[in-house]
Amino acid sequence: MSADSVRVAVIVGSVREGRFGPVVSNWFVDRAAEHGGFEVDVVDLAEADLPVVLPSFGGEPSPEAAAAVGAVTTRLAAADAFVVVTPEYNHSYPASLKNVIDWHDEEFHAKPVAFVSYGGLSGGLRAVEHLRQVFAELHAVTIRNTISFHNAGAQFGEDGRPKDNGPADAAAKILLDQLDWWARSLNEARDKRPYKV
């Protein structure tokens, strides 16, 4: 981490055709740019060309699969903090997101993770609650405040911005303030004492 900026990986979790995730993630990336102090890397799982499964228990992945996963690993390892943009599928989060999380471990250790969710009436909040438990297992620190868009398709205009952007922008500022604090604080702590599992 530089003295001036926090490196944040924005993980776009949905890979479905016709997904709404890019609209939400683009809006959030713009909020991070306006906030200042963040260097953003958008890790869009639909563009990462990750395999569905990797061999376990000593099996060797194909060179293509290993290269695709390795490219994502490098980007996650370089991040000081994470923002997961997720929809809610069947009261939880997408399998593509579960795969990328399960393939990684120490990249998340003692780093903050924030959530931006979207969906129907629940706004993706049930997906976020499941993700909190998963990231706790990876020794990550989840940010309390979230941003959620209920009935997301109706919330955004043709310009890709929320129709009533005041509340969403205010929520983004709070989340980004907290993410900045946690990222810098945890980075200082890791510098003083390496984190041990």
Results as ranks from 00 to 15, higher is better:
Ala71Ser: 15
Asp169Tyr: 06
Val8Trp: 00
Phe82Pro: 07
Pro51Asp: 03
Arg31Trp: 02
Gly123Tyr: 03
Ala171Trp: 12
Ala136Arg: 15
His35Ala: 05
Pro87Val: 06
Pro194Val: 14
Gln133Val: 05
Glu107Lys: 02
Val8Tyr: 04
Tyr118Thr: 03
Asp49Ala: 15
Glu137Tyr: 12
Ala71Glu: 12
Phe135Cys: 04
Ala77Cys: 00
Gly153Gln: 08
Pro87Ala: 06
Arg190Trp: 07
Leu54Lys: 08
Pro162Leu: 10
Ala136Phe: 12
His109Thr: 01
Ala46Thr: 02
Ser14Gln: 09
Phe20Glu: 01
Thr74Asp: 11
Val69Ser: 05
Asn145Cys: 02
Arg7Met: 00
Tyr89Pro: 05
Leu186Phe: 02
Phe20His: 04
Ala183Phe: 04
Glu17Trp: 09
Asp102Phe: 08
Trp182Glu: 06
Gly21Arg: 08
Ala189Pro: 05
Arg7Cys: 04
Val134Thr: 13
Leu179Arg: 11
His91Tyr: 12
Gly124Ala: 02
Asp30Tyr: 00
Trp27Pro: 03
Ser122Lys: 10
Leu45Ser: 06
Ser96His: 07
Arg75Asn: 08
Ile11Asp: 01
His139Pro: 10
Arg132Trp: 05
Pro63Gly: 01
Ser122Pro: 00
Val128Ala: 01
Ala78Leu: 01
Pro61Trp: 07
Leu125Glu: 06
Phe156Val: 06
Arg161Phe: 07
Leu179Asn: 08
Phe57Arg: 14
Val69Cys: 09
Pro94Phe: 03
Ala152Thr: 00
Leu50Arg: 11
Arg31Tyr: 01
Thr74Glu: 14
Arg132Lys: 14
Ala66Thr: 08
Gly13Gln: 04
Ala77Arg: 15
Phe28Asp: 05
Val53Pro: 00
Ser92Met: 08
Arg19Asp: 03
Asn187Thr: 12
Ala110Phe: 04
Asp177Gln: 08
Phe57Glu: 12
Asp177Asn: 14
Asp4Thr: 13
Arg16Lys: 12
Lys192Gln: 14
Glu158Leu: 12
His91Ile: 00
Pro63Asn: 06
Ala95Cys: 01
Thr73Ile: 01
Ala183Ser: 11
Glu106His: 11
Val84Asn: 11
Asp177Tyr: 05
Leu45Asp: 02
Leu97Gln: 03
Pro63Ile: 00
Gly59Ala: 11
Arg31Ala: 10
Val12Ser: 13
Glu47Gly: 09
Ala154Trp: 03
Pro55Tyr: 08
Thr73Lys: 10
His109Arg: 07
Ala140Asn: 12
Val40Gly: 09
Trp103Arg: 09
Phe149Leu: 06
Gly153Ile: 01
Ser185Trp: 03
Ala66Phe: 03
His104Ser: 01
Ile174Leu: 15
Phe20Trp: 01
Asn99Val: 00
Tyr89Asn: 05
Arg161Thr: 12
Trp181His: 10
Pro194Cys: 13
Lys173Met: 06
Gly21Asn: 13
Leu131Arg: 03
Ala66Gln: 13
His109Tyr: 11
Val69Trp: 07
Asp49Glu: 13
Ile174Ser: 12
Asn26Glu: 15
Val15Leu: 05
Arg75Thr: 03
Asn26Leu: 07
Leu176Ser: 07
Ala65Asp: 14
Asp191Ser: 15
Lys163Val: 15
Ser2Thr: 13
Leu175Pro: 09
Pro94Trp: 00
Phe115Arg: 06
Ala66Cys: 05
Leu138Asn: 13
Asp102Thr: 08
Asp169His: 13
Phe115Leu: 04
Ser92Asp: 11
Leu179Thr: 02
Val113Phe: 04
Leu131Phe: 05
Pro63Tyr: 07
